[in-house]
Design a protein around this nucleic acid. Structure first.
Length: 500
RNA sequence: GAUCCCGUAGCUCAGUGGUAGAGCAUCUGACUUUUAAUCCGAGGGCCGUAGGUUCAAGUCCUACCGGGAUCACCA
């Protein structure tokens, strides 16, 4: 901390710290034997049997201090909530003598007995108190009260989004309710992991630094390995390495980890984001739809305790079965047009008829994509499997067993957003090579996001991959959906920010 | 990448060309069951940065930095 940059409040705390040392008080002791947390005490206190909590030790950060002369009330906050502390000078003369050196933000430990105050608040009457960590930087503390209905009213909350994201540790202290989002995030991921583990699939780790990137259409981040003096890419998808493991003989593998895409940022895009991908041998996309219905039910039950999820003013129902609709049937349903099998000129005309703006250089697939996102997606509120996509959109998906020009693919849409993507994986090496060669042509044509041909990946398919179903779920967006958050930054502890 | 909006005390904000403000927080003092504690008094500012217009700029103009929203690309 630089002397010249210190504010008056910081300077004051620094002086208090030295004063504590000069009085022989250690402002940073090594441990504290906590026996109870705030939530336990508040939920277990009994007015008939206060003796059940006659000796507790709690610890937390001072969030409010009300000095009444020879008695003081504090609120301390731990991970589970807040609890009031009652201190009396005649019972704690030593601690009370340096109480004026303590501030909101300091962390203290209290040992005492639980009682209910005259005003009705369950509190800890301190018999011993100790400073556990002196805070040198003031936190932007907000005041709160409860209205007649018991709703919390917060005054002057710490609300500057930039500061909240940059100083998330402060945000978590002063806006503790945001912890629930992250707790749910953790539960969603662990529910998913438990579900797959219970099915007997194996969690694996594959390279994030890759000599070639693949598995999705996106621009990568590039980095450099000094000792070997060559460039590496941060992965944009997990897909190709997991398929190599299926080739290698594992019959169900999954990975939950970060992907990186060097593209724009907005409410639904962060440069690094978390993906789950799973590949299961001998299964197809029909089987995977059944599994996804089960998986989502399991996640909702475990993380939220129910299968009906409130998002905005909507209620999303995750009870199975989810609707299954062919992509081209949905086009007809929402545009009244049959788009299947149309060539580029015909598609362009349809787009015009529908008043969908199309960039001049758009391919046939791009036109379809555009019509879908403008005319269909926002109708797909309740969980809907959109199935059977055009082949050109999906270079890693297997051709449809009965429908020409389509692949066996589904995307799960909820609340108008894509949440999961799955194919029956392409395991015909001749077809796979051709499809990636076609991508190379698209790429040569100027599409930077077209897939790159990974010769080693194709060789692995040539060695022989069993029929396989693969599924990807964007974890951040799933968490947004299930926790009713509008911005990806509110489900990431530390969203990417420009340096200050 | 484009457009619009925002940046003033630790926090939340007012200030619409003429002496930089409020609430909370901080500091003095009073108060042994308070709770947005209360009451007395006080301190605290490169008004995002750099230029420009003007007798005079927090305020008007330009550029830059940072953030937000919308759009484009994408998951």
């Amino acid at each position: 901390m630089n002397e010249h940059q210190r504010t008056d409040q910081e300077q004051r705390r620094f002086e208090e710290l030295h004063e504590l040392y000069s009085r022989g008080i250690n402002p940073y002791p090594h441990e504290f034997n906590r026996t109870h947390n705030s939530l336990y005490i508040v939920s277990h206190f009994s007015d008939e049997h206060p003796e059940l909590l006659c000796d507790v030790a709690v610890a937390g950060r001072i969030m409010a201090m009300r000095k009444m002369g020879k008695a003081t009330f504090l609120h301390i906050q731990d991970q589970y909530g807040r609890i009031q502390i009652y201190l009396k000078q005649d019972e704690l003369p030593e601690f009370y003598s340096y109480l004026n050196l303590l501030d909101i933000g300091d962390i203290i430990g209290i040992q005492g007995f639980v009682f209910r105050t005259r005003m009705g608040e369950i509190s800890v009457h301190a018999m011993n108190a100790v400073l556990l960590a002196k805070s040198l930087r003031p936190i932007p503390i907000a005041k709160e009260e409860k209205d007649e209905d018991g709703n919390k009213i917060i005054y002057d909350a710490f609300s500057d989004k930039e500061l909240r994201y940059r100083k998330r540790y402060v945000d978590l202290i002063v806006n503790p309710e945001i912890r629930h989002v992250f707790e749910k995030r953790s539960k969603i991921i662990s529910a998913m992991r438990r579900y797959f583990d219970d099915m007997g699939y194996m969690e694996v780790e594959t390279p994030i630094l890759q000599p070639l990137y693949g598995g999705a259409s996106a621009r990568p981040f590039i980095t450099h390995h000094n000792a070997l003096d060559f460039d590496l890419y941060l992965r944009i998808a997990i897909e190709l390495y997991l398929k190599r493991l299926i080739v290698g003989g594992f019959e169900g593998v999954y990975e939950i980890s970060k992907n990186f895409r060097n593209e724009g940022m907005d409410k639904t895009h962060n440069p690094e984001f978390t993906m789950m991908e799973i590949y299961i041998a001998y299964k197809d996309y029909y089987w995977m739809m059944d599994m996804v219905e089960d998986l989502f039910g399991h996640i909702c039950e475990y993380a939220l305790g129910k299968k009906e999820v409130h998002h905005g003013n909507k209620v999303l129902n995750f009870n199975k079965p989810f609707r299954r609709a062919k992509m081209f049937d949905l086009f007809f349903e929402y545009t009244g047009k049959h788009l299947k099998g149309l060539n580029k000129a015909e598609l362009l005309q349809s787009a015009r008829d529908l008043q969908v703006e199309i960039p001049s250089d758009a391919s046939a697939m791009k036109i379809l994509d555009e019509i879908f996102s403008q005319k269909v997606e926002h109708h797909l509120i309740q969980p809907t499997f959109v199935i059977d996509y055009p082949l050109e959109m999906s270079p890693l998906a297997k051709k449809h067993r009965t429908e020409d020009g389509l692949v066996e693919r589904f995307e799960l849409f909820v609340n108008g957003n894509e949440i999961a993507n799955c194919f029956t994986e392409l395991n015909d090496p001749i077809d796979q090579r051709k499809r990636l060669e076609d991508q190379a042509l698209v790429r040569a044509d100027g599409d930077e996001e077209a897939m790159i041909l990974d010769e080693d990946f194709i060789q692995s398919i040539e060695v022989g991959m069993p029929p396989t179903a693969g599924l990807g779920i964007g974890i951040d967006r799933l968490v947004m959906l299930l926790t009713n958050q509008e911005s990806i930054r509110d489900v990431l502890f530390f969203p990417t920010m420009r340096p200050e």
